[in-house]
Structures are given as C-alpha cells and as structure tokens.
Design a protein around this nucleic acid. Sequence first.
DNA 1: AACTTTTTTTAGTCTACCCTAAAAATATTT
DNA 2: AAATATTTTTAGGGTAGACTAAAAAAAGTT
Lengths: 217, 217
Amino acid sequence: MTPNKEDFIKAIHELGGQDTVVTNKELVRSLSISAASVTEMNNRLLKEELITHLPYQGVQLTEKGLLIANQLIRKHRIWEVFLAEKLGYDWNEVHADADLLEHASSDFLIERLNIFLGEPTFDPHGGVIPNKDGTIPEIHSTPLIECQTGDRFKIKEVDDQEDFLEYLLYKKVKLGKEYTISDIEPYDGPFTLEALNGERTLIGHKAAFKILVELLN
Amino acid sequence: MTPNKEDFIKAIHELGGQDTVVTNKELVRSLSISAASVTEMNNRLLKEELITHLPYQGVQLTEKGLLIANQLIRKHRIWEVFLAEKLGYDWNEVHADADLLEHASSDFLIERLNIFLGEPTFDPHGGVIPNKDGTIPEIHSTPLIECQTGDRFKIKEVDDQEDFLEYLLYKKVKLGKEYTISDIEPYDGPFTLEALNGERTLIGHKAAFKILVELLN
DNA sequence: AACTTTTTTTAGTCTACCCTAAAAATATTT
DNA sequence: AAATATTTTTAGGGTAGACTAAAAAAAGTT
C-alpha cells in the first residue's frame, strides 16, 4: 500500500464506491490527474482485488477495498480530532494535515492516539470514526448537524467539554428532551429548536456537531 | 524535497557530515541500499548544492544541507517528545514512528505541536531540539546522561513533572547543588553521585535524562 | 613495482507514478 | 441510422528511486 493507492481508494469511497460505480471522469476531477493515470491505477488496484471494474463504466470497491478505505478514514478522522482538540486547529485547517499524517501512521500509533483522545466517536465535522477492524460503529444517534428542518428528535449524547456543558445548561438542553427543528439558517447559521411545550431554543452551528440525537420517525 | 532525500541528508548528518567527509560505504551500511543507489543520490543532492563531493572520498553537507538536516531533526525530536510524553511510548519505540511522521509534517503542524508540548528543549533521549530556523540552541547545561564517571557538575535544570520532582525531593537533589559522578553502572544502570559533603545518591538511568547539569571543568 | 582487494562509479533494468497524443468505444444529437 | 461529441483506453515517454553486474579507481600487500 502506497500513499497514492491509499488516496485513490479513499477517492473512490468518497464518490460512493461502496454501492455505486464510480466513473473515471469523476476520479479525474477528484484527484486532478489525467484520465490515463486513472486507467493505470485502476489496473493496479484491480490486480490486488481492491476494486471491480466494468470497462467504460467505472469501478467499485470490493469488500477488501472497503475495509482499507474505512481504516484510512479512521486514521484520518482520529488525526483530525487531535489537530482540532489538542493543537487548536480550526475545522478548515484540519483536513490537509490529517491527509498527510494518515499515510504515515502505524496501527500502533493510531491506537495509542485514539486512547489519548478518549476514544472519540466523531471527528470535528461530526463524521463517524470507523472501528479498528474497518467496520462502522452502529450509531443510533445522529449528529444534530445532519438533521433537516422538520425533524423530530430526542437528545441522546452531548460532547462533554466543560464550557459546552455550561452552554447547554444555559440553553436548557437535557438528555432525553424532545424537540422539533423549526428552522436551520443557511451559511452555517443557527438551528431553531422547538420543545414539546412550545419553548424555542437557538443552537449555534458549531454546537450542532456536539449534540447527538435520536430521530423519532 | 522527497522523504528519500530527507532520509539521505539525515544519514549524512548522523555520520558526521557537518564537519567530516562521509564515505559511500558508510551510507550503504547506514541506509541499507546499494552502492550504486548511493552514488545516484549523491549526484541528485550535489545538483541541489546540499552536499559537496570529493570523488572516491565521500560527501559533506553544505550550509544549506546542514540547515535542512537540523530542521528534520527538529521535527523528528518534537514528534519523539509527543510519542513518549503524550502517548506513553517507551524510548525504544519512539524512533520508528517519529521517522515516518517527520516526513508528513507541515511547518504549521510542528509549531503547533511544539507549543502543545510546552516548547521542550530536549527529546526523550536527551538530544537537543534545534530551533525553527535550523540553528542549534546554545545549551550551557548538559543532560546528566551524557556525563562521564569522574565529572564534577552543578544541577542546572530538571524536568518539571510532578512525580519526578517528588522523586528528586526524596533524593535531596536541588538546583545549584554540586556533585561528582563516582560510578555509572553499565546496561542502563544507575549513576552514583557524590555530593561535596560526601553524601552518596543513586540516580536511575531514566532520571539521568531529566536532569541538566553544568560541568565544572 | 606488481598483484590483489576494496570501494566507487557506470551501464543497463525495473517499478510506481505521472504525462500527452492518438485510437477505440460509448453516448448523444440530428 | 449516421454523424458528432464524450469518455476511456492504449501507446509511448518522463522522473525518482532502487537494483545487479561489470568497469574503473584507490588502497593495501607482497
């Protein structure tokens, strides 16, 4: 496994290669390499049985390929948590450095880092961190950030940072409490939540990552 | 700068390439590559003016090459501190992972990490961490671990970890106190220190890294 | 000084990437 | 259905890095 192959597999995954066929054209755009280079890399990964290939149609990840993709995403997201939480990176800054680091991380390192970070479930963007074995943890709760206007939900879990918990206390957000989303402002604007008793609460965009909810139908 | 070139420059540096000529043979052994590959890499670095070359004699780092070497060592050692202090690596474990990480670290990342670690001066082996600009900080104190039997010194600085300070308190080691090394046991054994009043103190091998002294002729 | 051994360099290959230009296959339009 | 446009593949090249085998240079020995 070389960094380039890893990036290629990750790109296929990002373009939906777990369930749909990804075209060369999409990979050309996504990786900014020539069409010829895509064909070439396809052939390499094909030989290793990491993808399947329908000529002139596109590629798709095999079980084996998907496992590798998930393990890469695990590494990537664990590094993102580190960069954001420990080194004070802004969200927009974490991606590039995590992309470099993920290719230079032994499994031993990642497991140690994971423990150091308190075995986080989500990355700073609210993305789920895959398990060590490449499986995706069963998340019955959804980050609030992924919900839509009109969704009804119950608070399931919240980030346990001192100041964030204080903020929630002030907002009267409690575990188990039910809300409906009455509005989501565009451009990273706040969520307006409406409780059962009609009480309205404004929740900031960043906070919406740190609140996990269970959707109720 | 590619990872391979970086490793090559580091190898030259480790073999004394700041002041002496390093032979191809030494590089072959150190990097475990063929003699032909060494000649080839020499030519590449020569073209970039990172080394000078005396045919059939060896290579030596230029000013430019030395700067790059020191910046790599900086990255390497900062990662070593992280792995040892934050992730609980043993000393023998830090090197391999730091070697990978150093090639995947932006300057931005290293500076953030450095601050996160409290701007350490030494790596877990007692090696000095070069400055950001590639210069070596003027260290008037020497890690005790680098001292020899018979050396007379004054305690200059100690690692400020809670439990370590307690240990020193118990051992009656204080800043400014003078000792002579009366014995160093082999195989990472303890140092026997003798104070001016004849009092003898046993200092463990690991502790010897965390104590900085000023040698008195 | 001539022979032998060691070290370095050159010559010729190989793989993993990447590229451009042209050919082949598929899709779209008329 | 034929012509055109798009996409993919093939063909041919380039660079970085590594190799082996052979030639050349230097060092060591008799």
